[in-house]
Nucleic acid binder design. Structure first.
Lengths: 214, 214
DNA sequence: TGTAGAGTGTTAAATTTTTCACACATTGAC
DNA sequence: GTCAATGTGTGAAAAATTTAACACTCTACA
């Protein structure tokens, strides 16, 4: 078995993908790790190391073919394979996700939106109907759901996550401010906005301290 | 000058803060790095190392006083100091931020919400009025703004970010899918949702591969 | 076709991050 | 008060990550 690739590397791959997409749009055909490194402000060495975790995509004396590398990274990340998503919590955040058409372009299709608020029942976000939570189970049994995004308040997240896992979903995009404790085979990706804000706050305070001292 | 603390450490601090807050709510008075490590699923060693970057908050034979440590980490992160925020982009995501009352509890107060869409002019999210972009400059000159959250489409983010920086703002919470190139003294925290989703996608695909092989 | 230059893949070194291990301060039971 | 148990702070080891260095391949131009 191949050795496992570290999350540090994985976290950088989407960024490569983004930059390559831009190059593609700009009609750039080929790029060297050096040129890319200058654009992305990372070392060329890191780019080459990262990519070589997945295989040799470049060619000596030439560099990397943008289109080819773009597609390869897309495959690695599972982009352009269709992923059906549901979003639990149709508040602003849930609606923001539902409205974000770029996900769909990449194969991440939101097929259902759920909430407890009866006022939302039957309303639509884009063409996605908001359903009540009691319809969740039937829905998930009927449609193949790959990923569930949790955008509801943290009070219910734990319970819902367990239900989803019992229903066979094993990828969860968690926006609730808590750490889900789920079986090992379930993949969880956390987006903790308040923690991100606090990190910003620290760096902000620290920058001020630095300049105040001068 | 004290040696700089790595972002890896900073990124973990809000999580400690969150767990300590929960302990506090549960009426727990003291905790050892060992107990905390069991709850948080990190090594006790890491907890002690992390905290000791900022000073010795614990006591041998006793552990850490929850309330005290909670407050200290709060201070380190600049929580409970007031931070005035503005949000550029009053779409779903901007409104989600504006509606999220917990930020305010922590001292992060959104004082303005801006958009280009005239249909939103004068509408309110909670008690925050949505203003048009052409009012931005006067607003920022009038009110002290610490942090700007960018939730508008990426096409305009670069330009707006430059304007904000010129107006003296030096902390930016960037939700747009691009990397801002700003002067060194500006602190930027990125939240790239699509990259987070791709990381989930990779891990999802990889989990599947693993189990399929068996 | 030959060859200088470009640029990858890869091994090795440097750095950073995490974990281990333990001396010693404090607690709390008796 | 004594003393075993607890549990931090910290220096050192281990592991992981990042950067550097370079042999060798392929390109592109004459």
């Amino acid at each position: 078995m191949e050795k496992e690739i570290s999350q540090a590397v994985i976290r950088r791959m989407p960024r490569y993908y983004r930059y390559l997409g831009e190059l593609l749009d700009d009609g750039v055909e080929r790029i060297s790790s050096n040129d890319l490194s200058a654009r992305m402000r990372v070392t060329a060495s890191q780019i080459r190391q990262d990519l070589n975790n997945f295989g040799g995509f470049g060619q000596q004396g030439y560099g990397y073919n943008v289109k080819y590398l773009y597609d390869e990274i897309g495959n690695i990340l599972g982009i352009n394979q269709r992923h059906n998503m549901i979003v639990i919590g149709a508040g602003n955040l849930g609606q923001a996700l539902a409205n974000y058409v770029n996900f769909e372009k990449r194969g991440f299709v939101i097929i259902g939106l759920f909430d407890v608020n009866p006022a939302l029942k039957g309303t639509c976000v884009r063409d996605i109907k908001v359903r009540m939570m009691d319809e969740l189970e039937v829905f998930v049994r009927k449609w193949p759901v790959d990923i569930a995004a949790l955008t509801m308040p943290k009070e219910h997240a734990k319970e819902i996550a367990n239900i989803l896992v019992d229903l066979g979903i094993h990828a969860i995009w968690n926006f609730a401010h808590l750490d889900l404790e789920l079986p090992e085979h379930v993949v969880v990706e956390n987006v903790h906005l308040s923690e991100s804000l606090m990190q910003l706050s620290y760096n902000f305070a620290n920058y001020k301290k630095l300049t105040d001292k001068k």
